[in-house]
């Protein structure tokens, strides 16, 4: 479904990604793990088109996405839950959700809203509150729900567990599994390597802008290098 080949990206003269190759197939849950500054967020932003790529290609459903604007990529079905939630703080929870459906010209909202409220009941209670006043965990749920409002074919998740209490992390990972069970294709970026690889079909390891390992989730959990670097074993 998503095929990234030889992708490079720069911040000014500094190169952040060195020829990334990866694939995500329909219905898969693929995880990308890596330390701070490895380029995980840069990779996701480049896939979404908010960070310019300087080489290589991004193909989605057989269509070349490389030169497409960010909004067009959302329209074709790639939605992202960005790092740090990125709420529209002063707007209400419901407005944040509706904006998630912006590329669908905000049509057919009610059924989608009800679906999100069923998945995250707390959001319904807080629907009129400014998104900025929600707790970290609630904001993360809102960020996921907002991305789902676009009815994405591929969901990119950037460190959804960051800064959350362990019980909330479990809840978020539970949600991700639910989404996968419903058939959503997911590309998940995480520092929480153990939890992420445990639920992954396949995984990639990113170090200083390069993919250094790729295998099934279970195999990566067993890999000595991964154990040492990311699992603290």
């Amino acid at each position: 479904m998503l095929k990234v080949s030889g992708l490079t990206s720069h911040y000014g003269r500094i190169q952040a990604l060195y020829g990334i190759d990866l694939e995500v197939h329909e219905g898969e849950l693929v995880v990308l793990v890596g330390g701070n500054g490895a380029g995980k967020t840069t990779l996701l932003r480049t896939i979404s088109g908010v960070q310019p790529m300087t080489g290589g290609s991004i193909e989605f459903k057989g269509r070349d996405m490389g030169q497409m604007s960010a909004d067009a990529r959302v329209m074709y079905g790639i939605a992202q839950v960005p790092e740090g939630r990125q709420m529209f703080g002063p707007l209400s929870v419901e407005d944040n959700l509706c904006l998630g459906a912006f590329t669908r010209r905000m049509r057919g909202l009610d059924t989608d809203l009800e679906k999100m409220y069923a998945m995250f009941p707390i959001l319904k209670t807080k629907r009129k509150d400014p998104a900025g006043t929600l707790s970290g965990g609630q904001q993360q749920m809102l960020a996921i729900a907002r991305a789902l409002m676009a009815r994405p074919k591929l969901l990119l998740l950037d460190e959804p567990s960051m800064g959350l209490a362990p019980n909330l992390v479990r809840e978020i990972f539970g949600t991700i599994l639910e989404l996968k069970a419903e058939g959503t294709t997911i590309f998940l970026v995480e520092q929480n390597a153990f939890a992420a690889l445990s639920i992954a079909d396949r995984g990639y390891v990113l170090e200083t802008g390069r993919i250094v390992l790729s295998d099934s989730g279970a195999a990566l959990l067993d890999n000595d290098r991964v154990k040492q670097a990311y699992l603290g074993l």
Binding site: G49, V50, F102, R105
Partner: peptide
């Protein structure tokens, strides 16, 4: 209106605005 909300969203968080597909 959608366009009005999109304008506000762009001001509050340009990155998120792009990621939900606002040009």
């Amino acid at each position: 209106t959608a366009l009005g909300k999109a304008m506000l969203a762009t001001a509050y968080n340009p990155l998120a605005a792009q990621l939900v597909g606002i040009n």
